[in-house]
């Protein structure tokens, strides 16, 4: 009787401490990513894994909230491209550690996305940020690079079970390729399988409507919100 009570107290004690430790790890991981401290992120994620914190929890409560903070700071004009890149680098390092563990779990990605800058266009920093933020929100991201032809987008849809295509164009001379690509996807009979979102300096919601894309976002963190909404609609 006494022993049983003791066991229960002990279990409660362990549970509480682990809980506190876990909260602390997750909070610190988030802070390290927001600060862009890659080494601290690696150490903390490893420590959390060693302390049996579940990989899924590290992702959902550590890395994802961190990148969403980073996106908010960018939207608010406190962070600029370099700060985003540094946080992304830290996030990716953390993600590397838990990826093998996530693969073993039954966690599904938020969605599968292929991003690319359309044919003729080489501007890639905006597209890269969109890819990073989607990855940081738990999407599985295939980056098709720059100068991506309609055929390459179609190929990506066919081979990767893509839910969402993200096209970027920074030039008025290349933005018509967004329409060409959208039409090619339709002609290939794949339009119902994927949502299409577009963005880049000259792109507007009106243009997205005109070419029959499913959405437009003016920056990377709003691109994430848009992607989540669209994928949830499916």
């Amino acid at each position: 009787m006494d022993d049983g009570k003791h066991d229960l107290q002990y279990a409660l004690f362990i549970h509480l401490n682990l809980g506190v430790a876990m909260e602390q790890y997750l909070e610190q991981i988030s802070q390290a990513v927001v600060k862009g401290d890659q080494n601290a992120t690696i150490e903390l994620v490893q420590a959390a894994v060693d302390a049996q914190v579940d990989a899924n929890t590290i992702m959902q409560k550590g890395l994802i909230p961190a990148m969403s903070d980073v996106g908010r700071l960018y939207e608010q004009g406190e962070y600029f491209v370099p700060e985003m890149l540094i946080s992304a680098r830290a996030m990716k390092a953390g993600l590397e550690i838990i990826k093998p563990l996530l693969a073993g779990s039954d966690l599904k990605p938020a969605g599968t996305v292929a991003v690319g800058t359309v044919k003729g266009d080489l501007h890639d920093i905006g597209k890269n940020l969109v890819g990073i933020m989607l990855e940081g929100a738990g999407f599985s991201v295939h980056d098709l690079g720059t100068d991506v032809s309609p055929e390459q987008f179609i190929e990506a849809i066919r081979t990767n079970q893509v839910d969402l295509i993200g096209m970027s164009a920074l030039l008025t001379t290349t933005m018509p390729m967004m329409e060409t690509t959208t039409n090619a996807i339709t002609r290939a009979g794949l339009r119902n399988q994927v949502k299409i979102i577009i963005g880049g300096a000259p792109i507007t919601q009106a243009y997205a409507d005109k070419i029959g894309a499913d959405g437009f976002a003016p920056d990377a963190s709003q691109a994430v919100k848009l992607a989540i909404n669209l994928v949830n609609q499916r």
């Binding site: 044919k119 003729g120 266009d121 080489l122 100068d147 001379t173 290349t174 018509p176």
Partner: peptide, 16 residues
């Protein structure tokens, strides 16, 4: 070299 198309013909950009 990066070729592109416009309604007024094709062009090329040079890419680093």
């Amino acid at each position: 070299i990066q070729p592109y198309q416009t309604p007024f013909g094709s062009g090329h950009y040079t890419e680093i």
